[in-house]
């Protein structure tokens, strides 16, 4: 019980792999020591327990896009500090340093097993993948480009939710992204939402939940309220798998849970349904 709690906790706080040295890594799920090479080759999924560790946006793009086909768009859209919020400027610099990215979302076009798509991927290392105005704008622009070009769009979420440091403006990104999603919906442009660990709060309660197909990675933390809030409010005791991909599947909120090594193939099968025939 205690062990499970620790595993969960470390996952929530975004602790990456405890690197023993370059050759070894410790699994966040089963705590086993693994060969880094095996671990990388297995797409950062533990070969022993199947725990899916977080991917960076670049790694996920590499996983999904056909080699050398990804062309980034809107990389110049970055956060401002509209509220002059305490420590935000520092957090943005740290986010850039941690992720090597200008913003918490990378978007562009590519082919996926030969099918041209728009692809947007969040990166947890940039302020927990949180959605401020810039992330909202990048999601909106990616969707608009999909609409304009009538290309299917795949968005991989990986986010703690709306970005507190931009206050109400972050909250409004929920409405903004859903507004463009409404246009996709009406125009019949396919939108596939991929929920990875974690997809929470303001992101789950907006664009991430309105895909035509909602895919999740095994074990991903997916939910509305942070665990602490949810547990304080409990009258009903949460089940052991509370707010996991499997819990959301069981409750009808996710279409399909797909192991990482099958993700690209499954997305291809789904995309083919929309674009083929």
């Amino acid at each position: 019980m205690q062990r499970g709690w620790f595993a969960r906790r470390s996952r929530i706080e975004g602790l990456a792999l405890d690197e023993m040295n370059d050759a070894w890594v410790k699994c966040n799920g089963c705590q086993q020591i693994l060969f880094a090479r095996d671990f990388e080759r297995n797409l950062k999924v533990c070969p022993r327990c199947g725990h899916h560790h977080r991917l960076s946006a670049r790694e996920r793009i590499e996983l999904l896009a056909d080699p050398d086909t990804f062309v980034e768009r809107d990389a110049e859209v970055v956060s401002a500090d509209p509220l002059g919020f305490p420590e935000y400027a520092d957090k943005l610099s740290k986010g850039r340093a941690n992720s090597g990215l200008p913003e918490a979302m990378v978007s562009g076009t590519c082919t996926l097993s030969g099918i041209p798509i728009v692809l947007a991927v969040a990166d947890f290392a940039f302020m927990g993948g949180s959605m401020g105005s810039a992330v909202g704008e990048k999601v909106a622009r990616a969707m608009e480009y999909a609409l304009e070009q009538r290309l299917p769009i795949v968005i991989c979420s990986c986010s703690g939710g709306a970005r507190m440091q931009e206050g109400l403006l972050s909250l409004m990104q929920m409405a903004k992204t859903c507004a463009v999603a409404a246009k996709l919906h009406e125009a019949g442009v396919p939108y596939i939402s991929v929920l990875t660990d974690p997809t929470m709060a303001g992101v789950l309660a907006s664009y991430a939940s309105v895909g035509d197909v909602v895919v999740a990675e095994p074990g991903a933390l997916i939910g509305f309220a942070g665990q602490r809030v949810a547990q304080q409010a409990q009258v009903v005791k949460p089940p052991p798998n509370f707010q996991t991909a499997e819990f959301q599947l069981e409750h009808g909120m996710v279409d399909i849970v797909v192991p990482r090594k099958e993700l690209k193939h499954t997305l291809h099968r789904i995309l083919r349904f929309f674009t083929g025939g």
Binding site: A75, E76, V77, V78, S79, A80, P82, P102, G132, S133, A134, G136, E137, A140, E166, L169, M172, Q173, A175, K176, A179, V180
Partner: peptide, 10 residues
């Protein structure tokens, strides 16, 4: 709603 938000161009 499309126009809400304040971001900048790097």
């Amino acid at each position: 709603y499309r126009n809400l938000g304040m971001w900048q161009i790097a």
